[in-house]
Design a protein around this nucleic acid. Structure first.
Lengths: 174, 174
DNA sequence: AGAGAAAACGCCTCCAGGTCGCAATAGCGA
DNA sequence: TCGCTATTGCGACCTGGAGGCGTTTTCTCT
């Protein structure tokens, strides 16, 4: 997220109507190659899995997808490859709560609101954070990055249930 | 954090000028007792440690303090007691990044800005989040809880270093 | 096409941060 | 003081992930 490889991540999605993910996959693999890396089966499958899935995938989920194409690919290989792809700015990971990290394409970066109760995840537009961002910068010189860690809270339905539960406690009938 | 035990957490700090932490410690222990719990040495020491330390303490740090008074207290006991204290609304834990969770008194709850680079932690006033909070509620019915997970980013000095590093890259001189 | 360097791999062990089951212990009300 | 049971120490276990090592695979250069 330093900036500099952003052109790499975004160029894959810049085309107004991407004809096939295949093009973007090859582009990502070219980046890997350009950095002195080698294109292995596991890497190709991993990159394809990342482009194919639009949501947030854990390393384990991605490994499962990769393993449908190459059963012997080890989980640690997936971790290493995700690290490498992240170093190249192709993917990023985010923490959406207590569980494992989730990975997605850097070009699809966004902030997250995650319900503490039901784990529902809302993709929040960056501009929702503009005020907080400005305030943090003004008061502390702190540049927030709302993407890496989710903002926890309660989704609409869980918040309502909480209110209901509290009221129920005040009423004698159990 | 459901609300209802909040009076418990806050009453310990409500007194304008707490004469001695001892009073507050006893108050917390009373809560424990009132919930059918027993006052053991490890619990007393843990509560004292929590009141004595003003910052964010990991379970392991708290265990170390407790163990200066009772060397045989096991780390798992500390975890269990922290859970219990949290259920009673006396303490809360927060995640300030990748490391272990940190615990502090519920009455001292606040949001955190944590530098991804140097781990510096800034205690942020809640009102900094009011705009985000209102926006999340209006758009998604989502009630954010800015306390449990920190907002990551870069502190002033680390942000400046990043800028410097990027500029350095653009300049021919290594 | 074939050789060689080195990147990547599979496998395994290890780590942190917790959680859990169990038998022994210790608070606390009667 | 007694007995009930909450709590404890201990150790095993769990998830999520990192790292070492010897082997395999990719890629480059001829």
């Amino acid at each position: 997220m330093i900036g500099g490889v952003s052109s790499a991540g975004s160029s894959a999605a810049e085309e107004p109507g991407v004809p096939h993910e295949a093009v973007a996959v090859e582009h990502a693999l070219d980046l890997l190659r350009g950095a002195g890396g080698r294109i292995t089966t596991s890497r190709r499958l991993l990159v394809e899995a990342l482009f194919a899935s639009s949501g947030h995938r854990t390393a384990e989920e991605l490994a499962a997808v990769v393993q449908t194409g190459a059963p012997d690919v080890h989980l640690s290989t997936v971790y290493r490859n995700l690290d490498e792809l992240e170093r190249l700015g192709i993917v990023v990971h985010a923490h959406l709560g207590h569980g494992p990290a989730t990975y997605h394409l850097a070009a699809r970066t966004h902030a997250h609101l995650v319900c503490e109760v039901c784990q529902a995840t809302i993709e929040a537009p960056d501009e929702m954070f503009s005020h907080l961002s400005a305030a943090a910068r003004a008061r502390f010189g702190f540049a927030i990055d709302p993407h890496h860690f989710a903002v926890l809270g309660r989704c609409r339905s869980c918040a309502e249930e909480t209110v209901a539960a509290v009221s129920a406690r005040a009423v004698p009938a159990g």
